[in-house]
Amino acid sequence: MAMKIPRLLQAALVLIGVYVGFIVVFDVLLQAIIPSSLLAMYMFFVTAGVFMVFTYDEEGTRELVAPIKALVEDPSKRLIRNIVFVIVPLAAGAATYFQMQPSFEAPVELRTIHPAPPTTAKIYGKQVNLLKLENPFRELEKEDPDQFRELVDEGAAVYIRNCQFCHGDKLDGNGPYAAGLNPTPLNFQDVGTIAQLQESYLFWRISTGGPGLPKEAAPWISSMPVWQDFLTEDEIWKVILYLYDYTGHEPRSWEHE
């Protein structure tokens, strides 16, 4: 019969296993690293879960804490105890030191990528109500599919001439200049971007660009140009048609169709 692993070690192994598992799965297998802030919270709750499973009954709990109890109370473990009692504060001190030590890493800045839009915005010199604004060409999708297709193609042309340098010819945010930008251009293929937004929202973001971001979207480091200075109103609406058409997303609407 194989030797039974002590419960405390079991718990520790589970935690280490989950931790390594997260890193292996995300960073190696999926090639998309797990953010350290998120991993910290994940591990906090995994630890809570492990604690719950290992302590719901009396016997198990006793077995779990027995080594710790022995370490503190057992006279024969004096040497280990003294070593541990020196190492633990030192480790805590070191951890604090490295945490607080200034580094060359720029501070984490969190931008709200999709700030709540204002009710109205001044676009093309007009005060526009963003809640009511609709894409004037959207209705053609059903009424006149041929003309709609044409408009989408025109939108594609506008996109290729203006947008693809950053947002990429696959609309995946990976254009030729994307690597030079921080924050990187948005990936429209992602379900979390344009699929979550209304067309009026896109119209507002495209036409007023980075400088038109509201206060809560600080820091205003977006390099999105103010497109109302370069494109016509119709061109922007057509590009929006193209964005949804190419990615296969549907713009968010408030009513069921």
Binding site: M41, L110, T112, P214, K215, E216
Partner: peptide, 10 residues
């Protein structure tokens, strides 16, 4: 400290 403190627009 766990979440970013966004200051809402006045």
């Amino acid at each position: 400290y766990g979440i970013p403190q966004i200051e809402p627009a006045p």
